[in-house]
Nucleic acid binder design. Structure first.
Length: 818
RNA sequence: GCGAGGGUAGCAAAGCGGUCAAAUGCGAAAGACUCAAAAUCUUUUGGCUUAGUGCCUUCGGAGGUUCGAAUCCUCUCCCUCGCACCA
C-alpha cells in the first residue's frame, strides 16, 4: 500500500481553490445557474456537529457536480449569529455575546474549510453584523409602511427560561421550543406583530406546487389550518356575540354555548349570582396555558347568562369551559351535544339536554354517543329534510339576510409575534414619542446600532443603556424613547438567502437584478424542524417583498430536501447531552475530509437517518488510499473494450444516482468501478473515473487529476458524458458467465474435497471456441485460488482425461479438476 | 385519535411485478501471503442437496390480484416522526 499524506494533499488543494477563486461565481448572462443553499447554522460554541457536516456535504456534492456540468453555481454560507445561547453564555461568563459569536464563527469557518466545502465566501452573511442587520431594520420599516407590522395588546406566550415572549410557532405542545421542559406562560402584553395571516391563503395554496417532502407540506397545511364555516350571531342581552362553526347545519341542536375560560370578556357574561362559582372554577384550572393536554377532562361552569337562539329564539345557557381556545374564532363555541363528541361529553357531565337534528340518510343513529357524520336534517324547522351540505348554505344565507350570519374562513395561523425582550438581536427601529406616538426611525438613520454596554438581569437589557433609550422624535424632535425590544432571530433568517445574491451591497438589502438571476433557490437543504417556523416566515417574506416590488417571484425554495439524522453508534440520535457525538473535525484530521464526506453519503439514502459506524469510516478511508495507490500502479496504455464499457457505464450510473439524490448508490458504483483499473488502461479512462469521484472526494480527485498531467483544476472540468457506443451489453452477459463459472469451480472443488478429500491441484476450463476470450486464466486463478487453465473445447492439445470438455455449453464452460 | 414515513438475511442498507435467495458495506468464517500478526487479495455467509444440479423456506403477519410478488391491492400488528380539544 502506497502511503500518502491526506492532510497535506487536502490542505494543498483547499489553498489552490482559494487562490484560483474557483468558487467565486458571479452572474453570467445567458449561462444557466443553479442555486444551492444549506440552511445557515447558528454558530454555537461547540462547533460543527456531524449533522452539519452531513448537510453541507450533501449540498457540496451537488454544487461541485453542477459546477462541472457548466452551471453558474451559487453556493454560499452564512451564520444565524444573533440569538439567546451566545447572550446567555456571555451573561454567565460576564463577557459579551459578540466575543462568543465571533469566535464561534471563526471556528465554524475553519471546520467548513477543512471539509473542502465549495463556498463562495465573499457572499457570507452574518446576521449580527450591522452591515446585515441594518437591512433587517430597513425591511422592518418597509413592512411597517405596508401595514404588515403592527403593535397590539394581547395574550402572548412567554417563556420564563428565555425571559422573553415567543411566537406561536415557537411553542410546541405548550412548551418552549428551546426549553422542552418549560411550560409557556400566557401574559397580556403589548407587542410587535407581523401580519403573516394576511398571506394565509396564499401560503396555503402555494404549498401544493412545491417540490418539498410531503410531510413538511402537510405540516405547513396543518399549521395554517384553513377551516371554512359560518359565523353566527347570538344575542346575549342586547349585545351580539359571534360564534364560528363549520357545522351550522346542526344549529337547531344547540343546547348551550361555551365561552373560553381564558376569554378576556368572560366576566361580562357572569351574573352576580354565579360569580363565586365561576371564580372557584377558574381557580381549579391548571395554569393558563392555551394548549392543554388532550386527555384533560372537559369541565365548565354556568355563567348565569343566556343567549337567544338566532332562529328559534330559545334561551340558551352560556357556560365557561376549559376546552375552548380563547383566541380562535371568537373564543366561544356552540354546544351541539348530539353531533359533537366533546359537546356530548360536556352535556352528559352537566346534564344539559341533547337534541338530535341530523340523522343518517340510512338507518338510525345511536343515542349513547354523538352522531358526528353528516346526514339529513330533522327537527330543524323549515330546513328539515335537507342534506347537511345544503343546510349549511341555506341556513347561513337565511341568517345572512338578517345580518345574523355570514360565511367565514378561519385559520389557525396567527400573526407572528416578532419582538423579543432580549439583547442579542436586531434593535427594532422605532421610537415612542409622547406627542407623536409610535414613530419609525428614518431610513437614513439606519442602522440603529446595538449598544455594546447593557446591564443584564434587569428586564430588557437595552432599557438599561440610557444613551440608547433616550433619543429625539424623528417627527417633532422632542425627547423620545427608543424601542428596547429586539427582533426575533427568525426575522434575520427570513431573507438571508436573498442577501447571498448581493451580500456586500451597502445601498440596499439586495439588487433586484442579482436576485432575479440567482433565485429562487433550486435546492435548499436543512432539518425538518423548521417546517412551521423558518419555512413559513421565509415564504411569507418572499410574498410580502414581492408585493412591495422588491422581488419578482412567489416562492423562495422550489425544492426542499430534508437530510436524515445522524445517530451515534448506540443507535440514538447524536447529541451532546447523550454524549454519543462524533466530532467531524476530529474525523477529518484522522481519516481526511474526503473519507468523511464519502462515508457520510455512503451509509444510506441522504434523506434517511443512519447510524454512525467507525468501522465503516475506516473502510472508506481504506478505499481512498486504495484509489490513490491504484493510480500509482497503473501503466497507462490502451483500454480494452471491456474497460471502456465499464467506465462509460459508471458515468451513466453515477450521473443518474446524483440526479436522483441517491448518493449512496453512487458511492457503491464508484467503489465497484475501481477494480476496472488494473494493468493496462487508457489514461483518459482513468481520468473519467477520477472526475466521477470529484464531487465526493474533491481533494483526492484534484491530486490525481494533476498527476495525470492536467494543468487546470478538476473542479471546473466538464462532467463526463457517457459514450453509449462503448457500452456493450454483451460484456455484462459475459461477466455474469464468468461469475457463474467461478461459483461452479468453487462448487466442484468443494465437492471433490468432500468426496475424495482431495484439495484439487489444477482446474481446467473448456469453453466454446468463440467464448475463449471471455475467460482469463489469470483472473480465474486469482478468484478461485487454484491454478486454472483455460482452453477451447476444440483445442487438440487440451488436457482432458475424463472427456469433460464435451459438456461445455454456450455461456457455461465445461470443467475438470484433478 | 389524525397524518406521514418505515418494517428486507448477524447488523446497516439497496431493490419496489419476472433476469431475486435478493446489490453494497460492516461483522463473522475459511484460504492465500507472512516466522507470526496487521494490511491486502480470494472465497463463504437461509436450508437441504448435486462434479458444476435441483429443491425447499424466506423480504413484519394474514388474505387477495397475477401465468408470476420483497415489489400491486385489502386487512392487521409493530416502530419512528409530526399534529393534537381550532368547534
Amino acid at each position: 500500500m502506497v502511503e500518502f499524506d491526506v492532510k497535506k494533499i487536502e490542505l494543498k488543494w483547499q489553498k489552490e481553490w482559494e487562490k484560483q477563486k474557483v468558487f467565486e461565481i458571479d452572474v453570467a448572462k445567458g449561462k444557466k445557474k443553479y442555486s444551492i443553499v444549506e440552511m445557515y447554522p447558528y454558530p454555537s460554541g461547540s462547533g460543527l456537529h456531524m449533522g452539519h457536516a452531513f448537510n453541507y456535504t450533501l449540498g457540496d456534492i451537488l454544487a461541485r457536480y453542477k459546477t462541472m456540468q457548466g452551471y453558474q453555481v451559487l453556493h454560499p454560507m452564512g451564520f444565524d449569529s444573533f440569538g439567546l445561547p451566545a447572550e446567555n453564555a456571555a451573561i454567565k461568563a460576564k463577557s459579551h455575546p459578540a466575543l462568543f459569536t465571533n469566535a464561534a464563527i471563526e471556528n465554524f469557518i475553519r471546520q467548513q474549510k477543512a471539509l473542502g466545502l465549495s463556498y463562495d465566501w465573499r457572499r457570507m452573511v452574518q446576521s449580527h453584523d450591522p452591515a446585515y442587520y441594518r437591512w433587517n431594520q430597513y425591511l422592518f420599516l418597509q413592512l411597517y409602511k405596508k401595514g404588515l407590522i403592527y403593535r397590539k395588546h394581547s395574550p402572548v406566550n412567554w417563556c420564563p427560561d428565555c425571559e422573553t415572549v415567543l411566537a406561536n410557532e415557537q411553542v410546541h405542545q405548550g412548551m418552549c421550543w428551546r426549553h422542552t421542559a418549560t411550560s409557556i406562560v400566557i401574559k397580556n402584553l403589548e407587542q410587535w406583530f407581523i401580519k403573516t395571516t394576511q398571506y394565509a391563503d396564499e401560503l396555503l395554496s402555494g404549498v401544493e406546487a412545491l417540490d418539498w417532502p410531503e410531510r413538511i407540506k402537510i405540516m405547513q397545511r396543518n399549521w395554517i389550518g384553513k377551516s371554512e364555516g359560518s359565523e353566527v350571531q347570538f344575542m346575549i342581552g342586547n349585545k351580539s356575540w359571534p360564534v364560528f362553526t363549520t357545522r351550522i347545519d346542526t344549529l337547531f341542536g344547540v343546547t348551550f354555548l361555551v365561552v373560553s375560560a381564558q376569554h378576556a370578556k368572560l366576566m361580562d357574561l357572569v351574573t352576580p349570582a354565579q360569580n363565586k362559582e365561576v371564580f372557584a372554577f377558574l381557580k381549579t384550572l391548571k395554569g393558563t396555558s392555551e394548549k392543554t393536554d388532550f386527555t384533560l377532562e372537559k369541565e365548565g361552569v354556568f355563567t348565569g347568562s343566556y343567549a337567544q337562539h338566532p332562529i328559534t329564539g330559545a334561551q340558551i345557557p352560556i357556560w365557561a369551559g376549559n376546552f375552548v381556545v380563547a383566541d380562535y374564532g371568537s373564543g366561544m363555541v356552540m354546544g351541539v351535544p348530539a353531533h359533537d363528541a366533546r359537546d356530548f361529553a360536556f352535556a352528559q357531565k352537566y346534564r344539559i339536554p341533547i337534541t338530535h337534528v341530523v340523522k343518517p340518510a340510512h338507518g338510525t343513529s345511536s343515542s349513547t354517543q354523538a352522531y358526528l357524520a353528516e346526514g339529513i336534517l330533522c327537527d330543524s324547522g323549515s330546513f328539515t329534510g335537507l342534506t347537511s351540505a345544503d343546510a349549511r348554505k341555506q341556513i347561513t344565507a337565511f341568517l345572512q339576510k338578517k345580518k345574523l350570519a355570514r360565511f367565514v374562513t378561519n385559520y389557525k395561523l396567527r400573526d407572528w409575534l416578532v419582538s423579543r425582550q432580549r439583547y442579542w438581536g436586531t434593535p427594532i427601529p422605532m421610537v415612542y414619542c409622547a406627542d407623536c406616538g409610535i414613530v419609525p426611525i428614518s431610513e437614513n438613520d439606519l442602522p440603529v446600532l446595538l449598544p455594546e454596554k447593557v446591564t443584564f438581569g434587569e428586564g430588557n437589557p437595552l432599557a438599561t443603556n440610557k444613551a440608547f433609550v433616550e433619543t429625539k422624535c424623528p417627527d417633532c424632535g422632542k425627547k423620545a424613547r427608543r424601542e428596547t425590544d429586539t427582533m426575533d432571530t427568525f426575522f434575520d433568517s427570513s431573507w438571508y438567502y436573498l442577501r447571498y445574491c448581493d451580500a456586500q451591497n451597502t445601498k440596499k438589502p439586495f439588487d433586484g437584478k442579482q436576485v432575479d438571476y440567482w433565485l429562487h433557490v433550486d435546492f435548499y437543504t436543512g432539518g425538518a424542524e423548521h417546517a412551521c417556523m423558518h419555512l413559513i416566515y421565509a415564504r411569507f417574506f418572499t410574498k410580502a417583498l414581492r408585493d412591495m416590488k422588491l422581488l419578482s417571484f412567489d416562492e423562495p425554495f422550489l425544492k426542499l430536501f430534508n437530510q436524515g439524522m445522524v445517530h451515534g453508534e448506540d443507535g440514538v440520535v447524536m447529541s451532546k447531552s447523550r454524549g454519543n457525538t462524533v466530532d467531524p473535525l476530529t474525523m477529518t484530521q484522522e481519516y481526511g475530509a474526503d473519507a468523511l464526506r464519502f462515508f457520510l453519503v455512503s451509509m444510506a439514502g441522504p434523506d434517511k437517518d443512519f447510524v454512525w459506524s467507525s468501522t465503516g469510516l475506516e473502510s472508506i478511508a481504506g478505499f481512498i488510499s486504495k484509489v490513490y495507490a491504484r493510480s500509482t500502479e497503473l501503466r497507462f496504455g490502451k483500454s480494452s473494450p471491456l474497460v471502456q464499457h465499464k467506465v462509460h457505464k459508471a458515468i451513466l450510473s453515477v450521473t443518474e444516482a446524483i440526479e436522483q439524490m441517491k448518493y449512496n448508490q453512487a458511492t457503491i458504483i464508484l467503489r465497484e468501478t475501481l477494480s476496472v483499473f488494473e494493468g493496462d488502461v487508457a489514461k483518459e479512462d482513468f481520468a473519467l473515473y477520477v472526475q466521477l469521484l470529484a464531487p465526493f472526494c474533491p481533494h483526492l480527485a484534484e491530486e490525481l487529476w494533476s498527476r495525470l498531467g492536467n494543468k487546470k483544476l478538476i473542479a471546473t472540468s466538464p462532467w463526463p458524458v457517457a459514450d453509449t457506443s462503448k457500452i456493450t451489453p454483451a460484456f455484462d452477459i459475459a461477466e455474469q458467465a464468468v461469475e457463474k463459472t467461478v461459483s461452479d469451480i468453487m462448487n466442484v472443488l468443494r465437492l471433490v474435497k468432500e468426496k475424495t478429500g482431495d484439495e484439487g491441484e489444477q482446474v481446467y476450463v473448456y469453453t466454446l471456441p468463440k467464448e475463449l476470450a471471455q475467460y482469463d486464466a489469470g483472473a480465474l486463478t486469482k478468484r478461485v485460488g487454484k491454478p486454472v487453465t483455460v482452453c477451447a473445447v476444440n483445442d487438440p492439445k487440451k488436457h482432458d482425461p475424463q472427456g469433460k470438455a464435451s459438456k461445455a455449453k454456450p455461456g457455461k464452460p465445461a470443467l475438470f479438476v484433478e
